[in-house]
Design a protein around this nucleic acid. Structure first.
Lengths: 246, 246
DNA sequence: TTACTTTTAATTGTCTGACATTTAAGTTGC
DNA sequence: GCAACTTAAATGTCAGACAATTAAAAGTAA
């Protein structure tokens, strides 16, 4: 009889959903104060701890913030760009690390998204953006660089490419691809890859962006995609072989 | 003296962060059971309600799930694709609706991302995908359709285009761009003439995808971007005028 | 033995009531 | 008028209790 999955969510979850709906439908505006915990407990006919659990759920999603003291309380929060950016990374990281998404699929998506940036980046790149990219390729070429630093620099290079579009929404949307997928790919391929080849391709991308040539930038990104995919497949094959012999 | 922003986070927030770190660093694996609330209260030297608030925070982020009964408890949750998708939409919607992101910026990002899908969609579109797109353009052409339904159909059309890439990661990453734009689009599609033009462009896009012609699809998306931007600016201008005269 | 029922123990869900802490506004003293 | 103190309102935290749920264990009958 019980509807299988979730017949009855917690009271705190129900209350959280009710308030969430009110906020997201625009019934409550930013910085508006919610009723006090005691008043909410009264309205929903539950105890204060239950209300508090609901409010903590909303706080975890950055939908509200709470302030202590007289005239404090819970307020509808304006989601800051930084919070959204960081949530985007968290969710993407979890999805990639815990779900069975194939390396090839993630790779394909990541480079497709990044190629979407080349036109705007070419049009708008400033000397600062170019300098940032050059700084990273230069760092990547240093022989003594640790694997961790090389990976961090790799991420920074791609972040600089996205930043060059000068579009915060695009930057936000690509956060998952750059900050979550790139490290994942680095983890898989760092044993097998040729730094030289990667630096060469990075330099070609930077050159193309500087020359305002989005086609070449996109084509080079595609080369990088092919190379990464190849490395990933080799590593996977090796791992499979080890498993068999073990 | 007080470091301005957040000198001392709540205990429940601290505990949530500690557990979050443990999960995201891989110290706890999927489906692993956390200690019971009583044990956690003991470990962290706090009361059970405080522990519960921390757990609710994590549950709100889908990091854990809880089961009741003996041998129940809190378990590290495998973030499902659907949960990630829905969180992506929630965060993007909030960012777009509550922050001062210009319509032009959002529009630019959305179409740049969508053009990133045309190549894969052209290669892989199935009859089902094509049928889905045609169904929506057909619906959009019906004269009696309400604004809400038109916009919902608009979103469905673009969703079908993304689905045609047959790449779940891409689909996830684009969820924000496609679904969260709906409220913004609601403002600009209310005249018959603009609907006509939009349907015309949608049909051209579907034609191009069917003909496996990504260049035409991309170009048409760019036309749609220009047109959408124009409509948006007109709406903004009208509103400004009304504000002045009022 | 097997299948069914009952009991039991562990755990989360919820409530009550209390106290501590923080903060802004009001009040008092000078 | 200004500084120090008081007060009130709110969140943060705690302790203890009971209800509800659930899987395992124990018991029971065929």
């Amino acid at each position: 009889m019980k509807s299988n999955s979730t017949r009855k969510p917690d009271l705190s979850a129900q209350i959280a959903q009710a308030i969430r709906d009110a906020i997201m439908s625009g019934q409550m505006i930013v910085d508006e104060r919610l009723p006090s915990e005691a008043e909410l407990a009264d309205q929903f006919q539950v105890s204060r701890p239950t209300v508090r659990e609901a409010l903590k759920r909303l706080a975890a999603q950055s939908l509200i913030r709470t302030e202590r003291g007289a005239f404090g309380g819970a307020f509808v929060n304006r989601l800051s760009y930084e919070e959204a950016y960081s949530q985007q990374i968290t969710t993407s990281t979890l999805l990639l690390s815990m779900n069975t998404v194939s390396f090839a699929t993630a790779c394909e998506a990541r480079y497709a998204l990044e190629r979407a940036c080349t036109r705007l980046a070419s049009e708008r790149r400033t000397p600062d953006h170019l300098a940032a990219m050059r700084a990273e390729t230069h760092r990547q070429a240093q022989p003594g660089l640790s694997d961790e630093c090389f990976c961090a620099s790799d991420v920074a290079f791609h972040r600089a490419l996205v930043d060059a579009t000068d579009n915060p929404v695009l930057r936000y949307q690509l956060a998952g691809a750059v900050e979550a997928m790139q490290p994942l790919m680095n983890m898989i391929t760092f044993t097998a890859r040729s730094r030289e080849e990667i630096v060469r391709l990075h330099n070609r991308i930077a050159d193309a962006i500087e020359a305002q040539d989005p086609e070449t930038a996109s084509a080079t990104l595609s080369e990088l995609e092919t190379y990464t995919l190849e490395l990933g497949q080799n590593v996977m094959a090796e791992r499979a072989q080890k498993r068999d012999s073990a």
